[in-house]
Amino acid sequence: MMEEIRIYQSYFSAVAIPLIVIAIPLYGMFKKVSVYESFVEGAKEGFKVGVMIIPYLVAIFVAINMFRACGAMDQMEQWLKTPLAFIGFPPEVLPMAIIRPLTGGGSAGIVADLAQEHGTNSLITQMAGTMFGSTETTFYILAVYFGAVNIKKTRHALPAGLIADVIAIFLSVYIVRMLLG
């Protein structure tokens, strides 16, 4: 059953994007849109956006990686371990919980690391994997999405995103334990 789902999933992701890429111009031609001109017109904006987000990316990348490099995260882990173990949160996945909103690559690395150490079918890896799959790199999304339109005052975007992240991280632990434990 799971095997089948996995196969369909791989079929789907292989075909979905090319299908969309064909379908849109096809429909455009059907509607008598000059597709080439429209495409170029739209694509031009891509470059503006790419340049526009760079300052925002620099701000976020630098701050987050300085924080990761200074070792404060290890300290945080040390402090949080005991209270979290008390509510049933395994300390092994704590780095994942801390890093996830900050960096996508770093958190994928943690999943890989845990998989190697505990095995891909261990509860720990499954919890970390669920966290990875169910949350996003909030800081990155914020930098890119708001950077693209030059929004500097983000108001309640970050708190709202982080609240959802925290809930998702805790839920991952409990739901995985319930369903797979």
């Binding site: 849109i24 111009p25 597709v35 170029v40 017109e41 739209g42 694509a43 891509g46 790419g50």
Partner: peptide
């Protein structure tokens, strides 16, 4: 970004 923005521009112009 350029690729998808281009495609979306077609989708927009076509009324999708």
């Amino acid at each position: 970004i350029a690729l998808w923005m281009g495609l979306m521009k077609i989708a927009e112009d076509a009324g999708l």
